[in-house]
Design a protein around this nucleic acid. Structure first.
Lengths: 225, 225
DNA sequence: TTTTGTGAACTAGTTCACAGCT
DNA sequence: AGCTGTGAACTAGTTCACAAAA
């Protein structure tokens, strides 16, 4: 075969895996967790697709890109594939996350249980209000002064930043994040942020999401013929 | 010309506008707001593209699909195009939003200033804890019992629901939302939710987003040859 | 027989490039 | 001259369908 890379270590070109693909890998991992909890040992792309409304060929293609994890005639071993996916997604280690902005949203995200799963640790909150600095979130995440970001990011080995500051400060804050050596950013502020090419930025834009729903509703009304 | 629909009222087929397109319409609207605030009266697709890192042809194509809003040799009138976009996105009226779940995340979203802009109104929070029912968010959004959802959704004319409940209750809650006649849902809980075909579901999956960033970081490390 | 891994076919989305309007 | 609106070309992403492996 001439798959891009065989079982062992997929350290190689992998030029540019589409974001759609990486998102799906994460979804597959969640499906496998559910199956494992249900005591399922082995699963075919077929049955995975049926249970979780996915496409079997796409599952196979996504997985095959990273190695030959399946067994013909059998399917995939759930535990085995989970392990591979966790390794591919870089979840085989603890990743520390900092949240920029200890406002409503930042504090809520800091204590969000979904984050703690799968190896993420919310290590710190950062804010510029001295009243907040030194406090902790309800869940116990310490709030630091944003000026100490570089120092603490290094000390705590923070590799991901979440931007939860008001829109007008977002670009400035993301610049500090980048300057502190963090190379992956999840942005909740509306609008566009500039980051260098070697930094990965993912944005969750609530305004865009809501307006897109609004469009759908407006269309429905129009359709009422 | 035979554009799908001319200026007047774009009430027609519009079969299935891609979600990528509707998201961009929302982005364009934000760009126009910025330009208007800066006192710009007219803008070409070219300059819009340069300023906001978009593609000029795509802007033109997206807009042209809904009508001929531009003027050849001139570009688009900012105020005029804003008005058209707001109408297309259904923002030419107040849309009321309910948030399901008055936990950390629900309360944070209820008071999130980004939502209030552009005609959205967070009208209500819903929870099943009697200790919370009757209270209000810091910003003053009332917390209702989830059993009153149908009644209050009708009374207040709520057309969008945001799911901010823990993952295990999400499917149940979304079923209540659908039963109450709401047809647009923004979901923050991880995992898949089932909704009927005539209900629009948009999901923001924080786990998937973070894991996708983790993948990127893992790749970078691998690249260090 | 069952099910993977994968070329080939197809579908969706983006960008180019230019005719035609102002 | 300048810029839109749009067919045509291109690129990306998905699904099909089947040979080969277990």
């Amino acid at each position: 075969m001439k798959t891009p890379n065989k079982a062992g270590k997929p350290r190689q070109a992998l030029d540019q895996v589409s974001e759609l693909t990486t998102n799906r890998l994460s979804v597959y991992l969640r499906c496998l967790n559910a199956l494992e909890d249900a005591g399922v040992l082995t699963v075919s792309s077929q049955s995975l697709a049926e249970q979780f409304h996915l496409n079997a060929a796409q599952i196979r293609k996504d997985l095959a890109y990273f190695g030959e994890f399946g067994v013909r005639g059998v399917g995939y071993y759930v535990g085995d594939l989970k392990r591979h996916l966790r390794q591919i997604l870089g979840l085989d280690r603890k990743l520390r996350v900092a949240i920029m902005g200890a406002g409503n949203l930042g504090l809520a995200l800091a204590d969000y249980p979904g984050f703690r799963q799968e190896g993420f640790e919310i290590a710190a909150l950062f804010d510029n209000l001295s009243a907040k600095v030194g406090q902790r979130s309800r869940g116990g995440v310490p709030i630091h002064d944003i000026h100490d970001l570089k120092k603490i990011a290094r000390r705590d080995g923070i590799s991901i930043a979440v931007i939860a500051v008001p829109a007008p400060s977002a670009q400035h804050v993301v610049a500090l994040v980048v300057a502190s050596g963090i190379r992956a950013v999840l942005n909740f502020s509306p609008g566009t942020l500039e980051v260098p090419d070697d930094v990965k930025l993912k944005s969750v834009d609530l305004t865009v999401s809501l307006e897109s729903l609004s469009f759908f509703l407006a269309q429905c009304e129009g359709d009422e013929k």
